[in-house]
């Protein structure tokens, strides 16, 4: 890491705290998405928390650090993949009978792998919402940077 990259973003205190907390925020978002059928939350809320973790990283370290992990084309691709995943769960219902039929094995309540297709729908919506909202933020920042230059 050269000195030019170190000077970008906020101060050293903010960077250290961000390094400690951003993993926990990301993990909490993934927890909310995966446990959407057991506890309050779900795909939308968990997805926004994941997007906030990346935005947190971006505000502290500057945009170049985040663009190294997640380029815009990759964000756009994964967001579309989430939408396709949710739609394909809907179309898979035709195997059991009709649109959106939940023919997956149900399991027992309060277990992580239960409740049929709800967990897969939550994962699809979480992927879509998180990368969609992060993509909007990224595009706005890049446009502002381009206009300033």
């Amino acid at each position: 890491m050269n000195s030019d990259l170190k000077n970008k973003g906020m101060s050293l205190i903010v960077k250290t705290i961000t390094r400690l907390t951003v993993g926990l925020i990301l993990l909490y978002g993934i927890y909310i998405v995966l446990h959407g059928h057991i506890s309050p939350g779900g795909g939308f809320a968990g997805g926004v928390i994941i997007a906030l973790a990346f935005i947190h990283l971006m505000l502290a370290f500057g945009k170049d650090e985040v663009l190294k992990i997640l380029p815009v084309t990759f964000v756009s691709l994964l967001e579309s993949l989430g939408a396709v995943l949710f739609l394909s769960i809907a179309i898979l219902g035709f195997l059991g009978g009709y649109f959106f039929m939940d023919w997956f094995a149900k399991g027992k309540p309060f277990k992580l792998f239960s409740a049929g297709s709800i967990i897969f729908s939550n994962i699809g919506i979480g992927l879509k919402v998180s990368l969609g909202l992060f993509g909007i933020f990224l595009v706005l920042i890049l446009l502002k940077f381009k206009a300033k230059k």
Binding site: H37, G41, D102, P109, S117, I118, N122
Partner: peptide, 23 residues
Amino acid sequence: TKATNIVSAIILNFRAYDTLGEA
């Protein structure tokens, strides 16, 4: 649905069509 969060059961199972439109 065997889902203990009834809100999740409604929006992703009984009324999944609405959620597809929202997505």
